[in-house]
């Protein structure tokens, strides 16, 4: 398990540029207009790369993925896919998985806040 891996970024050129500025060299640029057709292939390509340990994506881009690839993104452990963006919840997949495994929606902040008060 102790092998050297890279970080990859998938998304629009505006999204990936910042990460490239931090030194990330494995990236897949998919312009906004082509996301509906090309994003699936780009994500599958990165997920199949054994040299990649972490994949970074924007939260909103998950909407463009097909059901199959989205499922893969949400459950993949090697590489792990980290989504960042406005919602900041870490993607719906993890939340659903928690609900299924534990039986309670532990990421429901409103409910948690109510319980604490």
């Amino acid at each position: 398990m102790s092998q050297s891996q890279e970080i990859a970024v998938v998304g629009s050129p505006e999204f990936t540029t910042g990460f490239r500025l931090a030194g990330v060299r494995r990236f897949e640029n998919v312009p906004d207009g082509e996301k509906a057709t090309d994003l699936d292939a780009a994500v599958t390509n990165v997920l199949a790369d054994e040299g990649v340990g972490i994949v970074v994506m924007h939260d909103d881009d998950l909407e463009y993925l097909s059901r199959e690839v989205r499922g893969e993104v949400e459950t993949s452990v090697e590489p792990v896919v980290i989504t960042i963006g406005a919602s900041g919840s870490g993607g719906g997949g993890l939340r659903e998985q928690i609900k299924r495994a534990i039986g309670i929606d532990l990421m429901d902040e409103e409910a948690n806040a109510d319980n604490q008060t």
Partner: peptide, 16 residues
């Protein structure tokens, strides 16, 4: 900005 991004030579690596 893109030019600077393309010029990067040191790349981050992770070991698990």
């Amino acid at each position: 900005v893109r030019g600077a991004a393309a010029a990067l030579q040191e790349h981050p690596e992770i070991t698990t």
